[in-house]
């Protein structure tokens, strides 16, 4: 790519690339066919940087690449053994802190958390399972909120809003009791398309559109054959 006025030069894993000024590291990498794993980040919404999956190393310092803008001459470490180990540990911690029963989950095969576990070759988490007791809220006419699977990424809170900008989902409680809940009043009149979008935007199987079960055969689901991120890597 030629250097133009709105392009700056950065290096990712020793590979020099020209990227759009003002973009974040995640976006800049994607532009160049380099995958940096993300989980809580949702394209088009403000980054939250809570899951730390997109951690990269700049000047020997760990940074979240979904919030860090690129600067001229920046040297970024991404696909290294150390960072991939950190990412794998994050996935393992997420698996043991909730109740992720993949065989019984409607989102299995299309789940980003599961796909990241596949990509980083997690066979078993190295941490003890906590098996917390969580509730399933099926009181809304359109949506089931499965708290066992929620990773509190905030993607539904940020992206699912009504025409006045009101949020359908919200945080409740603090610390280890933190939960994402569906507004009981707004939830009652939730339009169909928004409920479907909420299920799509959820990276795990915590938001389920009612009356939709297992409708995709094993082998044809999103991450059955290709690892997450390969759509970016194959798009050079």
């Amino acid at each position: 790519m030629e250097k133009t006025n709105n392009k700056i030069r950065i290096t990712i894993d020793g590979k020099r690339t020209y990227v759009t000024k003002g973009s974040t590291i995640v976006e800049a990498a994607k532009e160049n066919g380099i995958y940096i794993p993300t989980l809580c980040h949702f394209e088009g919404a403000d980054p939250k940087a809570c899951c730390r999956m997109c951690t990269v190393k700049i000047n020997n310092r760990m940074m979240t690449s979904c919030t860090t803008p690129v600067t001229e001459g920046m040297e970024i470490e991404n696909d290294t053994e150390e960072l991939n180990e950190v990412r794998k540990s994050i996935i393992e911690l997420l698996f043991v802190s909730g109740n992720h029963f993949c065989p019984a989950c409607e989102k299995s095969g299309n789940c980003e958390l599961q796909a990241l576990a596949y990509r980083y070759k997690m066979l078993v988490p190295r941490f003890p399972y906590s098996f917390p007791r969580k509730e399933v809220d099926a009181s809304s006419p359109k949506i089931i909120k499965e708290q066992n699977r929620c990773i509190a990424c905030k993607r539904c809170i940020k992206t699912i809003r009504d025409e006045h900008g009101k949020h359908y989902f919200a945080y409740k409680n603090r610390g280890q009791h933190l939960e994402v809940i569906l507004d009981p009043v707004l939830g009652d009149t939730m339009p169909d398309d928004l409920a479907k979008k909420a299920m799509e935007n959820c990276p795990v199987g915590s938001i389920l559109y009612k009356e939709k079960g297992f409708d995709q055969p094993i082998g044809t689901r999103k991450y059955d054959k290709q690892p997450i991120g390969s759509e970016i890597e194959n798009n050079v």
């Binding site: 109740n99 993949c102 019984a104 399972y129 098996f131 917390p132 007791r133």
Partner: peptide
């Protein structure tokens, strides 16, 4: 899965 994380029988965990 059951040997690795308890699997479906472990759905009773926490209760």
């Amino acid at each position: 899965e059951c040997a690795i994380m308890g699997g479906l029988p472990a759905m009773r965990n926490g209760i």
